[in-house]
């Protein structure tokens, strides 16, 4: 094992897969000469050349569509959205084209494509640039959704995504790019399968389900709860939201009898609500308290720093939610 930043882990996954398979290429705004808006693709242009690291004009619907058409005819594109906020102008391509072509062709035309980029709130970038897009896309059959929290998961899941024969939406954390974590040594080809949650922390006091950036908030809250209340939380990171590893969450809840779901998306529906539904249905008799959710507040993201902090899930809110379900 060695330590890498989240950004470097994603870059490594792309490099290794591009070296392995000449049909893999990267396309997006500023991915080449500029070295990536978030420097994820730094160095890729000089390594692979302009054929395989393709700068585009600002035209998400256009280059998303180009990627899908290229995927339908045999290539394996990685399409970078500078941020997922800009994917909305390509929404139709993802929903009506990528997610549908296998079905509309009776299973005869696959679409092996990865859309990736940073997701969620950054710091004070206000309402149009702070979306957590997972609830918009998880509703769609025909795509997979990965949302890695750690560098290791980012690398292993991205390698799986690039090799996958169906469209994958890969939601990176905009504030996670500098996070460091252990990643297998160079030359170790770790491919992490979709639909398998990671138990990030074991415990018997309360299950916390959290993915993406809130994973770190949950981990911090768990330490506080252990120290202050002697309550050991079990933290389950589903890692992919489609497919969703319901089984691992249900097993955890059967052990802890309590559950809090922490997510950065808005509270109305989405994977947060889906997870609550799956757990109440599959572990009803094991629950000692109603499941709590810690979500972004139900408002467009305000610019002011104090308000932004108020809107996003915090360690304090997670601690309070766990105390509530544990009757502490």
């Amino acid at each position: 094992m060695r330590e890498l930043r989240y950004r470097e882990a994603i870059r490594e996954a792309m490099i290794e897969e591009m070296e392995r398979d000449p049909s893999v290429f990267l396309m997006g705004e500023e991915v080449g000469h500029y070295q990536g808006a978030y420097k994820v693709s730094e160095g890729l242009l000089s390594r692979f050349g302009e054929q395989r690291v393709v700068d585009t004009p600002i035209a998400e619907a256009g280059f998303a569509g180009i990627g899908i058409g290229a995927a339908m005819t045999g290539l394996r594109p990685i399409i970078e959205f500078m941020t997922w906020n800009f994917s909305f102008v390509a929404f139709d391509q993802i929903i009506s084209s990528a997610a549908k072509v296998a079905q509309m062709s009776g299973g005869r035309v696959p679409c092996p494509i990865v859309f990736r980029g940073p997701n969620g709130a950054a710091k004070q970038v206000a309402s149009q640039h702070s979306h957590s897009v997972d609830p918009f896309y998880t509703n769609i059959p025909g795509v997979w959704i990965a949302m890695p929290a750690t560098p290791r998961d980012a690398k292993g899941l991205l390698k799986a995504a690039i090799r996958e024969n169906n469209p994958v939406l890969f939601l990176e954390g905009e504030t996670l790019y500098n996070v460091k974590g252990e990643v297998p040594d160079e030359g170790v080809d770790e491919v992490i399968p979709f639909g398998k949650a990671r138990i990030a922390r074991e415990g018997d006091g309360c299950t916390i389900v959290a993915w993406g950036r809130p994973h770190y908030i949950a981990m911090e809250a768990a330490e506080i709860l252990a120290k202050d209340h002697g309550l050991q939380c079990e933290i389950v990171d589903p890692r992919t939201l489609r497919p969703l590893d319901v089984e691992s969450m249900v097993q955890s809840v059967k052990k802890t009898n309590r559950c809090v779901v922490v997510h950065e998306h808005w509270p109305y529906g989405g994977p947060g609500a889906e997870i609550v539904d799956q757990i109440q249905k599959n572990a009803f008799d094991w629950l000692d308290a109603p499941i709590e959710r810690v979500a972004a507040l139900d408002v467009p993201m305000p610019y002011a720093s104090n308000l932004e902090t108020l809107v996003l899930p915090t360690v304090e809110r997670v601690v309070e939610a766990v105390k509530k379900v544990a009757y502490l």
């Binding site: 296998a102 025909g142 997979w144 024969n165 169906n166 399968p193 497919p243 799956q278």
Partner: peptide, 20 residues
């Protein structure tokens, strides 16, 4: 036909494609 045969998702996680 919702998903063509997949390599990323193990068969035991794929009852019919989506949520378990």
């Amino acid at each position: 036909s919702v998903y063509v045969p997949t390599s990323a998702v193990p068969a035991d996680r794929l009852p019919r494609g989506v949520v378990r």
